[in-house]
Simulated scan of single mutants.
Amino acid sequence: MAPFGRFYSYPNNYRVQRCEVIAAMNGLTVELVPGFQAGVTNQSPEYLAKFPLGKIPGFESGDGSFHLAEGQAIARYVAESGPKADQLLGAAGDAKTRALIDMWSCFAEQELAANLTPPGLMSVKILPYDEARYNMHIAAFERALGRVEAELKDGRKFLVGGQLTLADIMIVGVLQASTKYIMDKEMRKQVPGVEAYLKNIMEVPEMKEAFGSLELIEARAKLE
């Protein structure tokens, strides 16, 4: 039987791992296309015919007839395609809950991921170190963390309602990546609610299966 869909991506891409969590919750089978090479596969004519901007990841339906780029759109599609859709996205008639889940999903990409990516890439020497740019993104990331901390100030375990939703999967997907590169012990001390929330969500079986164990750096790498 063909899988629900397949991903074109390098290994351990958190945008794919988030979708693996969602697929598992929905009882859907998804696969990684073997042999993918960033900068090679996604620049090939075959890839660009499916995903014109060459973005990673690319999602293809099991029958090959449907293609999606943009991690947020892919995650929402997978969430909408199974029996847990109401839990993940909010019930069809509950516009406020659905809007809040969308808000946090956008926040994950526009505030957290956008500010994690440049310093993260500098940390692993993919981007050249630029002190001003690095510090600008770190400050913006810390500001975004403060927003999440304020939302969790009452000790809640989930961002929207009383159960795991797409909002949590999108946010924690970025947070667990950040703790490998920039969200060090000193930064975590400023947001104890976020740290507790992150650790709690990462214990959800589907999260643990997709992401593995949480990595927590003590201090950010010194760059120059």
Rank of each mutant, 00 (worst) to 15 (best):
V21C: 09
L28F: 02
C19D: 07
N26I: 05
C19P: 04
E46S: 05
V33N: 14
P45M: 02
A49F: 06
N26L: 07
M25Y: 00
G35Y: 15
V30S: 08
K50A: 09
Y47S: 04
P34Y: 15
R18M: 07
M25D: 03
L32Y: 11
V30R: 06
T29L: 10
P34C: 15
E20Q: 15
L48R: 04
V30W: 06
N26R: 07
Q37H: 12
E20K: 15
Q17E: 15
A23N: 05
A38K: 13
L32V: 00
Q37G: 00
A23P: 07
Q37R: 14
T41W: 07
L48I: 00
P34W: 15
T29W: 00
L28Y: 02
L48K: 01
G39W: 06
N26C: 11
G27V: 11
A24L: 14
E46D: 13
G39L: 09
E46A: 13
A24Y: 10
F36G: 13
E31Y: 02
F36Q: 11
K50L: 10
A38H: 12
L48M: 01
P45H: 04
E46W: 05
G27C: 10
S44W: 06
M25A: 01
V30Q: 08
E31G: 00
C19T: 02
I22L: 06
E31A: 11
P34R: 15
G39R: 08
F36Y: 12
K50E: 02
V33S: 13
T29Q: 14
P45D: 10
A24F: 12
P45T: 05
A38S: 12
C19A: 09
G27E: 03
M25P: 00
K50F: 01
L28V: 02
Q17N: 14
V33G: 13
V33M: 13
Q37W: 03
T29F: 01
A49M: 07
E46F: 04
T41Q: 11
R18S: 04
V30H: 06
E20C: 12
E20H: 10
V33C: 10
R18P: 01
T29H: 10
V40D: 08
A24C: 12
M25V: 00
K50C: 04
E31K: 07
G27R: 10
Q43T: 03
E46M: 08
V40W: 00
S44H: 07
N26T: 04
V40F: 03
T29P: 03
G39M: 09
L48G: 01
E46K: 01
V21M: 09
L28D: 00
G35I: 15
G35H: 15
N42S: 02
V30F: 06
P34M: 14
G39Y: 05
F36D: 12
A38V: 11
T29E: 14
K50T: 04
G39A: 09
